[in-house]
Write a protein that binds this DNA or RNA. Structure first.
Length: 497
DNA sequence: AGCGTAACTTAGGAAGAAATAC
DNA sequence: GTATTTCTTCCTAAGTTACGCT
């Protein structure tokens, strides 16, 4: 709690203190004037003690707690949609707390207020059992809108945005949407060559806006960048996507490390995750970028004649349902399929390799685990131990061979065979551990989950599993199998994305 | 045509649970 | 059995896009 990095940030502290003072009585306000003089040590200790106590609960106590939680899920975690009982994704209202925006968010630390029934809109069908508000309270509104999928909503006080209660990913509704998403991406596959040809032509257009659109599309396609909507300054962290790139985010190199026309990207994207990449691009795109940057300041928009609306409008004219993000889905899925074809080694590690290629493409990063260095060192130590064992086993084998020749042992060959097997076993284990070490090292900063869950057509993975007899459980855990139930049902081993 | 907002998907970190090491 | 590591779930912030309004 107190030891979190947030508490050391000035913006967080200032925002918190300002909002806290608003909550104080006038008497408190006259006493508590300086956050630096406040000591939350006692509260922190209490919180820590609670966490500690949880750890040392008996099995029975833990079970009691679990049962109580399950009861809550059973009662509130489901709804009836089109006569089907469906799991709700987030059925609990968000509790009050201090806002934890990502990156340099100007609002971090602000007080996120408690939501009252009076703030909540209920959306259900007229003839359903309308949920009863807590005693003495009423809902903000009860409506019956069957054109939307949310069950309840409220407006959050930090950004003024609407929050929704919606169905779980394993629901029929979400599954159908997911399927549709991948079908649109597959449709793009059939016309992507034409679209690429088109934007290549557009790079030479006389219209500035067309040229900018073409370069942006080239980036979105080649690098899987996000669309990049405009953001209100001062309301959120300063992050960008393709269309909102500024001059300061790219550096042009006529030549770099033996490549020509290299663009160096360095910007903060969604969730303030850094995108850093040096990419050789086609000459036409490069020349255009030079042109776009002429007479501009570092803080100016690179694509000043382009918005995501214009881009998406153009895309939808090329293919029904086509938007910028479809390229991310398409490129992610097609990359997985290609990689799986190339990595013929039908092992889970090669699947992870393919998955990783996609995660790198989409720039899905994670903070290296806190214990990463330590656990890597531990693994290395195990490898070293095994190496010693291998050396020992080898010398024993040598000895055994020698003895088999010199002495008339009753069964000299058996001993040699045994020692040989021991060497083999050692070598296998060593190889396995070294592979694991490589895998882990390569995964240090890469998050595989996001692409698996949101970008990779599950039918590719299901087909791959069937084709090579890999159990699906090796690829997808329980909740992932639930989410992708639609794909598991329908996919044969010859599925082509 | 441009803009604001509602609705929905995508995202990484924290917390909790399970597996594995010691 | 206990400690540590790894996997899974939960949480909610932060994006994208469609749509209605002017």
């Amino acid at each position: 709690m107190l030891d979190h990095e947030y508490t050391t940030k000035d913006v967080f502290r200032e925002n918190f203190f300002k909002d806290w003072r608003k909550e104080m009585t006038s008497e408190e306000r006259s006493i508590i004037k300086d956050l630096n003089k406040c000591d939350f040590g006692e509260m922190n200790a209490m919180h820590k003690a609670k966490v500690e106590a949880r750890k040392y609960m008996t099995k029975e106590e833990k079970q009691t707690l679990k049962d109580a939680n399950q009861k809550i899920v059973d009662e509130f975690g489901y709804c009836l949609l089109d006569h089907h009982k469906e799991r709700i994704g987030n059925f609990k209202i968000e509790p009050p707390g201090l806002f934890r925006g990502r990156g340099e968010h100007p609002k971090r630390g602000m007080l996120k207020k408690r939501i009252q029934p009076e703030d909540v809109i209920i959306n259900c069908s007229k003839e359903s059992n309308i949920p009863v508000p807590p005693a003495g309270h009423h809902w903000k509104e009860v409506r019956h809108d069957n054109t939307v999928t949310w069950l309840a909503s409220w407006t959050e006080n930090i950004q003024g945005s609407i929050k929704y209660i919606m169905l779980n990913a394993n629901s029929k509704l979400k599954g159908e949407k997911d399927w549709e998403k991948y079908e649109v991406a597959r449709k793009l596959k059939t016309c992507v060559d034409d679209i690429r040809y088109q934007y290549n032509q557009d790079l030479k257009s006389k219209q500035m806006s067309t040229r900018q659109r073409a370069v942006a599309l080239y980036f979105i396609d080649k690098l899987a960048l996000r669309a990049g909507n405009e953001k209100e300054e001062g309301e959120t962290a300063d992050t960008v996507g393709c269309c909102s790139l500024r001059v300061e985010h790219i550096t042009l190199h006529d030549k770099l490390d033996g490549d020509e026309y290299v663009v160096e990207f360095d910007f903060l994207g969604k969730d303030s995750i850094r995108y850093y990449n040096k990419v050789p691009v086609i000459k036409k795109a490069f020349k255009n970028l030079k042109l776009f940057m002429e007479n501009k300041e570092p803080g100016d928009d690179l694509f000043d004649h382009l918005t995501t609306q214009k881009l998406n409008k153009h895309l939808s004219s090329l293919m029904a349902g086509l938007t910028a993000k479809v390229f991310r889905t398409y490129n992610a899925s097609i990359t997985l399929q290609q990689q799986l074809k190339e990595l013929t080694n039908k092992m889970i590690l090669s699947y992870n390799r393919a998955n990783r290629a996609v995660a790198i493409l989409c720039n899905h990063q994670r903070a290296p685990p806190k214990t990463f260095e330590q656990s890597m060192a531990n693994l290395q130590a195990k490898i070293d131990t095994r190496k010693e064992q291998l050396a020992l086993a080898k010398s024993e084998l040598k000895q055994a061979k020698k003895e088999a020749k010199s002495k008339d042992n009753s069964d000299p060959k058996a001993l040699v065979e045994r020692k040989k097997a021991a060497v083999k076993r050692c070598e296998d284990q060593l190889l396995k551990m070294e592979l694991q070490a490589t895998d882990r090292e390569e995964n240090k900063q890469i998050a595989l989950g996001t692409s698996k869950l949101n970008y990779l057509d599950p039918r590719i993975s299901v087909a791959w599993c069937k084709k090579f007899g890999v159990p699906l459980e090796k690829i997808y855990n329980k909740s992932q199998r639930d989410k992708f139930a639609w794909a598991i049902d329908m996919t044969e081993e010859d599925f082509e994305f």
